[in-house]
Design a protein around this nucleic acid. Structure first.
Lengths: 194, 194
DNA sequence: CAGAATTATGCACTCGGTGCAAATCAATGC
DNA sequence: GCATTGATTTGCACCGAGTGCATAATTCTG
């Protein structure tokens, strides 16, 4: 579906994919910070300037399309029945993320996040963005009145849920993929609410 | 206390304070991102290179000493009675932060945080650091066994508490200092645990 | 006051990122 | 098939945050 609109779009996607692949190879070899954009561009046979036409920042290479993913989570959240509690609804919405990820190279991504401060920073900023996206629906489910700017309680709720998600994924990676991420997530929530 | 050990230390502190003051003035006038380090250095009658001897990054000007503050919170947390629950203990530890802050220019700081993405990023990284600092004590209070690397549940707990703190302070700032930050914080916790 | 230790400064450099203008190349109408 | 149009590629010059290094100025110590 939507495979070949025209040559332009096809090559654009292909080039983008190859840049990302090349970059990941380099990151794996030398680490994220030690790899420069010039190296990536050279390895992908592209000019430095063109690289920045495909990816706005170096971090974008490893942190996919934040906005699109956030929107999909929001859609999943709002698709849940209205009577569902905030926790069960957001839990279900997060579950939709699992399908897209391939556990094979997820460990690599996690390892990158570990030693690259700039990556962690952008990752957290992504969460801030999601916070704004998911807060309105959660606000409804918490029984709070609608407001122009999200209620701090809704914001805190979403941030806490994201914190549980991060902690779970982090522990899952540190275990080398052994532990069950869903179980870790549920345990984290349990710890907070107890 | 510890006022004048020698001239070196005294001038150092004085210069540092004046750099910070000058910078805040410029930030207030032009915004954080629009103010360059060269401007700050020039306005403080100091060389650009010397600026970086006083502050490692531009963000450090507005985000005080992360490590020291984190340590003080950790000390406050560990000073709480061992039987106290994780929530009440961490709440009490956070309260010790209130005394140091002067509500007058806190609103300015919050406004800076708002339109400066790099500041928000560093702020969140600070929280990550605190997470590691506070997790061990919380882990004990949650009745979890000791581990070398913190239990994800403890990490999630601390992150959630920090999220509540941030949401509360954020709402407090947006209200122009009208709302009660403690009340906001407690309400945020309540929303999560309900 | 002389020598050791800090601190201040200038300089050159790296790296991420952006604006601009010229060149290249695909899509479209004729 | 060809010219025009519009997007893409590229090079170039530039900026701003940091860093390493060597030198000069200054404070502390004997």
């Amino acid at each position: 579906m939507a495979s070949a609109p025209n040559l332009r779009e096809r090559t654009r996607r292909a080039v983008r994919a190859e840049i990302a692949a090349t970059a990941m190879r380099l990151f794996e070899e030398q680490g994220f910070d030690a790899t420069t954009v010039d190296q990536i561009a050279a390895a992908a046979s592209i000019s430095r300037r063109s690289f920045f036409h495909y990816f706005g920042t170096k971090e974008d290479l490893v942190l996919g399309d934040t906005e699109a993913l956030g929107e999909s989570v929001r859609a999943a959240l709002e698709a849940r029945p209205a009577e569902e509690s905030a926790w069960t609804a957001i839990r279900a919405a997060f579950m939709t993320l699992r399908s897209t990820e391939d556990s094979a190279d997820d460990l690599l991504l996690a390892r990158l996040h570990h030693d690259a401060p700039s990556l962690r920073a952008k990752h957290l900023e992504k969460h801030l963005r999601w916070q704004e996206l998911l807060a309105p629906d959660i606000q409804r489910r918490l029984g709070l009145p609608e407001t122009e700017t999200p209620d701090p309680r809704a914001r805190a709720f979403v941030a806490a849920a994201l914190a549980c998600l991060d902690a779970a994924l982090n522990a899952w990676c540190e275990s080398g993929g052994e532990l069950d991420p869903v179980r870790l997530f549920d345990d984290a929530i349990e710890a907070i609410r107890a």
